[in-house]
Design a protein around this nucleic acid. Structure first.
Lengths: 329, 329
DNA sequence: ATGAAAGCGCTAACAC
DNA sequence: GTGTTAGCGCTTTCAT
């Protein structure tokens, strides 16, 4: 492997000072035009690429953006990561993705590593709250929280999803269809979003004059497995005739359990998912769901990355509306 | 924002030489034990994290692994990326994901950026071949190719999928079911894997004594849209009674077209997909498919990242078998 | 218009 | 056991 081409090696090759090379490559005016072109040509020839580490060490910033997600197999996160990656591609940014698996230890570790590389910003879907003294030290990090919100040191912006109306309307819709035993599976109080989704569900019940049946409401740490198992409980106990899901992982988990119960049961239980994976429309005649504005989310996140116009637009807290999508016969 | 905590600032804070701090933090023996502990404690207190850029500049390596994928919305790539990200998490590596969208210009750009940050290795699913003079300069990069193979400078390892038997068997299975008009949609010759999949399809036809009908075979640059549109052509022209897909994007695209044709058509056309998204089992009574060994792929890729045992095991070319999964009534 | 020096954070190689 | 020096690649500042 040939030694790395540096600004100095080019200078030596050309018998000039490395400063002239530096200036030429950065289009500084004070370089003779012919010389500049010659230098640039030679650099291209040699396959020169600037050394990001050297630039970073000078305090020039890193062009590195961190992205912390619970996982990337869930289509919601995958699509979001895809959108972010494309946006970063377009802005010549590096996107470092760390998966937290909703584990605060992994989250802490990821943040620490991103401090090491001096990421210019970190976009993160926070894991469910940990005890206060376990707060990850994100000092020096420009943190932007997505979808979920938690008290995190260094947070400069937050983009949340306002799903209150969508969840509320989902319950009302089910009630109008004649359902009286409407279940809910969502995240617990460790997450403010979990709390709010449950509140929205309850608001829906109130609107329709239904009273809450504790046996039909399940909350916990949001995961695929949790959605699966809660769905099982829901069927075994006082059986619900309808279900509203309050989380993307939960929704997929519950749906997988539903599908395994056979095609018939899907018609007996009105299912309203959360997030809108591409295949929901094809399942059991179409799965109704609460759709999240993925592209808008990515767009807002990118906007918050830019230094300008951040505080300008106010507090740095944005909310994007979810949308109820009804499907089926 | 407080200034960054460095080895020097700690030294100053403690009134000692920065070298002692350096030694203490890296557990060098030549430091008085009490002093070492004191230094470590203070460093933790101050929230010290080593500066990756400085380490990189000394030539100590970067712990950065690049991953180039066409996209990450396709469940196959998403699951693979997920597996790689978890593996990197476990090994304290940074995973930088670049999406190429199967565009060689984006691929070239991504490789250049990874050279800038001196990635220790790059795992890539190469885009379809470009003209030779457009070869991306990956010099100095430790490239590992995945799934697809192309002549790329700096390649130190390749992990491919051997799907010959699976595709061949798929055709034989369809023939045994009585199908005589079996279609195929796959990648074109720009990709060696495309060529081989078509060859496997033809081998299947030969085995069963069927002759190839050019109108039923479509190849091109593999993408969701391509799969969709070719599926349309297949239905309009001499209509096939069965279809074998030769690519993950193509499979999803073709399937989406199939689903839109209504639930009935799925039973008229025997569909064999490629890749095994979680929902295939739930569609139209179960979609048969060629399943790819995602976890094994990630495992092999990780193994190739480790410097040891690379050349030891031979040429650095591994092949993993795909598997035909039959579903449906 | 060009060059020389300094310094970003870190550690190997020398002193002592 | 501890401290000093030098140098990785780059650009800002100060000569020339």
């Amino acid at each position: 492997m040939t030694k790395r081409v540096t600004i100095k090696s080019i200078a030596q090759d050309l018998g000039i000072s490395h400063m002239t090379v530096s200036r030429a490559l950065s289009d500084h005016p004070n370089v003779h035009k012919d010389k500049r072109e010659a230098i640039k040509a030679r650099a291209r020839e040699l396959g020169y690429v600037p050394n990001a580490a050297a630039k970073a060490m000078r305090g020039d910033g890193t062009k590195i953006v961190g992205l912390l997600l619970p996982n990337i197999t869930n289509e919601f996160y995958a699509r979001f990561a895809n959108a972010m990656a494309l946006a970063c591609e377009a802005n010549s940014l590096h996107l470092i993705i760390h998966l937290t698996n909703d584990d605060s230890a992994l989250e802490r570790q990821a943040l620490e590593r991103l401090r090491e590389v001096q990421a210019m910003a970190v976009l993160m879907v926070p894991t469910p709250a940990t005890s206060p003294h376990e707060q990850p030290s994100a000092s020096g990090l420009n943190v932007i929280q997505l979808v979920r919100q938690r008290a995190i040191d260094g947070t400069s912006g937050t983009v949340l999803i306002d799903d209150h109306k969508a969840i509320h309307d989902a319950v009302v819709h089910l009630a109008q269809q004649g359902h009286r035993a409407i279940g809910f599976i969502g995240a617990n109080n460790n997450l403010s979003s979990g709390k709010q989704r449950l509140a929205a569900f309850r608001a829906g019940l109130t609107t329709t004059g239904l009273s809450e049946d504790a046996a039909l409401v399940h909350t916990g740490s949001p995961s695929f497995e949790m959605g699966r198992s809660c769905f099982g409980k829901l069927l075994k106990g006082k059986s619900a005739t309808a279900l509203v899901c309050g989380g993307v992982e939960i929704s997929n988990g519950a749906l997988s359990a539903l599908m395994e119960h056979g095609p018939g049961s899907a018609k007996q239980l009105a299912f309203i998912g959360y997030g809108d994976p591409s295949y929901y429309r094809w399942l059991a005649g179409g799965i109704s769901t609460i759709r999240l504005p993925i592209d808008a989310l990515a767009q807002e996140a990118m906007a918050l990355l830019q230094p300008n116009g951040d505080a300008a637009k106010g507090s740095g807290l944005r909310k994007l509306n979810a949308e109820l999508v009804l499907r089926g016969p």
